[in-house]
C-alpha cells in the first residue's frame, strides 16, 4: 500500500511536488502529464530518493522514514529512466544486483536467488543477452535488463518511469501485459507513461500530474476522461469507439 499525505518534495530545497495526496491499495496505476510535470519526481519520492519537506509518506502502513533501505527494497523497487553506468557490467551481473536486498552481510548466493534471477531473465526473454556487456546491447534491450533486475528483486510494489522508453510496439505490449498480470497477482504497479493509448489500455486507474500537483485521479473507464486529458496537455483529444472498445487519442493537427 502506498499513501501520500500532503507531500511536498523536490531537490535543493525547491519543492517540485506540491501538496500531493493519494493512495494506492492495488492494481495498475498509470501516471501521465506533460514534460516536466513532476511524474518522475513522484516515483522517486515514493522510492524515498528525494527529500520530503512536508507531509507524510507511508508504505504498507509504515512511514518510509522508519524503514531501513534493505527492508524498503524488499517491498518496493523503481525502474528509472536515467541509468548511465560508468563501469561495464554484464547483463547477468546487473540482474543479479536485484537480489542484494535479500542477501546477508556476507554474500551468499542461495537457490532462491538463482531461481528468481532465472525467472526474471526468462520472463523478459533475455537469456541470449546474459553474458553480453551492458554497453554492447541496444537501448530497448537495456530497458528489458533493468525490468528483469526489478523482477528479480521480487517486491510488492514496482514503480516504472516511462514504461515505453526505447521499446518497440511488441515489447511495449509484452511488458505492459506482464506488469498487468503481476498487478492481478496483488503487486502494485505504478507506471509513468508518455504513450497515452498504452497507458489507457493497461492501467486500471489514471493519475494526471501537472506543475507538481495531481490534477485528476480517475478510473480509466470514467466518462469525463477526455476533457481531463485535454486540460492536462492543452491539446484536443478524440474518442474512437469500435469493437475494440473506447479509445482516446491526441488529435494532431
Amino acid at each position: 500500500m502506498i499513501k501520500l499525505e500532503g507531500v511536498f518534495s523536490g531537490y535543493n530545497r525547491e519543492p517540485v511536488l506540491k501538496d500531493i495526496y493519494f493512495e494506492v491499495e492495488e492494481g495498475f496505476v498509470g501516471v501521465i502529464g506533460p514534460n516536466g510535470a513532476g511524474k518522475s519526481t513522484l516515483l522517486k519520492t515514493i522510492a524515498s530518493l528525494v527529500e520530503v519537506y512536508e507531509g507524510a509518506l507511508y508504505i504498507n502502513g509504515k512511514s518510509v522514514t522508519d524503514y531501513k533501505r534493505k527492508e524498503l527494497s524488499k517491498i518496493l523497487t523503481l525502474v528509472s529512466q536515467d541509468f548511465f553506468p560508468i563501469y561495464d557490467y554484464t547483463v547477468r551481473e546487473l540482474v543479479e544486483m536485484g537480489r542484494i536486498a535479500h542477501q546477508g552481510f556476507f554474500p551468499n548466493w542461495t537457490k532462491e536467488d538463482e531461481e528468481q534471477v532465472k525467472i526474471a531473465i526468462n520472463t523478459l526473454g533475455i537469456k541470449y543477452l546474459e553474458r553480453r556487456r551492458y554497453s554492447q546491447i541496444s537501448s530497448g534491450e537495456k530497458r528489458l535488463v533493468m525490468l528483469a533486475r526489478a523482477i528479480a528483486q521480487n517486491v510488492r510494489i514496482i514503480l516504472v518511469d516511462e514504461l515505453e522508453l526505447h521499446l518497440d510496439p511488441k515489447h511495449k505490449m509484452v511488458i505492459a501485459s506482464y506488469l498487468k498480470k503481476l498487478s492481478k497477482m496483488g503487486i502494485i504497479i505504478l507506471a509513468v507513461f508518455h504513450d497515452i493509448d498504452l497507458a489507457l489500455s493497461y492501467s486500471d486507474r489514471i493519475i494526471g500530474v501537472k506543475e507538481g500537483r495531481i490534477t485528476f485521479d480517475l478510473d480509466v473507464s470514467s466518462s469525463n476522461l477526455r476533457e481531463h486529458l485535454e486540460k492536462l496537455y492543452g491539446v484536443d483529444f478524440v474518442e474512437v469507439n469500435g469493437n475494440f472498445g473506447k479509445r482516446i487519442f491526441p488529435f494532431y493537427k
Partner: peptide, 24 residues
C-alpha cells in the same frame, strides 16, 4: 570483499544502489 556486490551496485550510481537495497 563482504561488500563487493554492494560496491558493484554503488559504482553504478547512488540512487541505483539505494533502489536495490544498499545502505549507501
Amino acid at each position: 570483499y563482504t561488500q563487493s556486490v554492494r560496491l558493484d551496485a554503488f559504482s553504478l550510481g547512488e540512487d541505483f544502489a539505494k533502489i536495490v537495497g544498499v545502505e549507501t
